[in-house]
Simulated scan of single mutants.
Amino acid sequence: MKLTNETKVGLLAIVSIVVLVLGFNFLKGKSLFSKTPVLFAEFSNIGTLEKSNQVKINGLPVGTVYTMVPKDMEVNKIIVEIHLSREVNIPKNSVAFIDGPLVGGAFINITKGDANVYLASGDTISTKLDQGLISDIKAQITPTITRVNETLDSLKLTIGAMNDIFDPNTKNNMRSLIANLAISSGHLQQMLNVQSGMLGKSLSNMNSITGNLAANNDAITSSIRNVEVTTSKLANSNIDGTVAAMQATINELKNTISSFNSSKGTLGLLMNDRGIYDRLDNMTNRLNTVALSAEILFDDIRVHPKRYVNISVFGGKNKGEPLTSPVAKDTLVVKQ
């Protein structure tokens, strides 16, 4: 029987359609030649989960997501159909949640329980709402980003205010200030120079001083020892007795001065009695008068000795007038 060209084209089209359907189902994770175990899970939010995304247990892929349909018209829950690609025992108290890496699509992660009874095909696994690693990072980063945005806004306002403050004159002043700082730093570098700087010279002087101290260490030690000996002698000396003797002497001096100031005793009477003072003054004046008269008499005897001693056979000569005041000693002339 000879097939026509139209029949050949029809058969080829049918085979192509079958291969296309089988390949599409294979890419979706369906088993083509055996019955696949099916589990169901209900989530209130599936996030970025899509069909054919993996289902993992302890990081190992064990199935794929087949379909996702709403449970009711309000879409309060979403039923996810999971087709297992491996024969694994999943305890009934296991929990499924949606997780996702930093880079890549979301997947369903199953945390195994410890029950001895396992889920069968067609059972519904328990779920929990877990935002996953990316959601946790977003939740932690979002407040930081908000604060960064607020800081940037404040920085913009600050920069604007600084632009208003820094007029051309202020900018020139800032340039001058920076230039002065550069000059000052150069001077500071010169001062800190080890060889020619003031600090280097000061350190050299300090080294000389410390060298002299080290060279005279024995003399310094001897001086300190002498000071220790002197202080030891002072500590052992009878300072209290000396101080007591000095205090007694001071007390006696006070008593003597007090007796001078009082009207008791000879010195006190002489110092405080006005009558005695007047009598002594009169006596002094009289003594001065007697001394003056005596001096005049002695001068008159020297000047006119013949007035007092006269031995003459034929009569005396003119004796002259008597003196009334002392004669100056540098012009005294004795007449013969």
Rank of each mutant, 00 (worst) to 15 (best):
N45L: 05
T36W: 01
L192F: 14
A41I: 04
V229H: 11
G160V: 02
S208H: 11
I137E: 00
A41P: 06
D136T: 07
R307F: 01
T210G: 04
V80L: 00
S94F: 03
H187G: 07
M283N: 11
M162A: 08
R302H: 06
P37I: 10
F97H: 10
T221W: 05
I311L: 12
A215Q: 14
S202H: 07
K2E: 15
L323N: 01
I296T: 11
L287N: 06
S31E: 09
G10A: 14
I178L: 11
D114Y: 15
L203T: 07
L188K: 04
K30V: 03
G186A: 13
A115P: 03
E81K: 12
T331I: 06
K264F: 02
I90G: 04
V148A: 04
N217F: 11
V327H: 01
V18I: 14
T48V: 07
K264Y: 08
D218M: 12
A161S: 13
N288P: 02
M271E: 05
S31W: 09
N207M: 07
L192P: 07
R175A: 10
I183V: 12
I183K: 13
K2L: 15
R86N: 14
G160P: 03
N193M: 01
T256A: 14
I220H: 04
F166T: 11
L12M: 11
D114I: 14
K8N: 11
A182C: 05
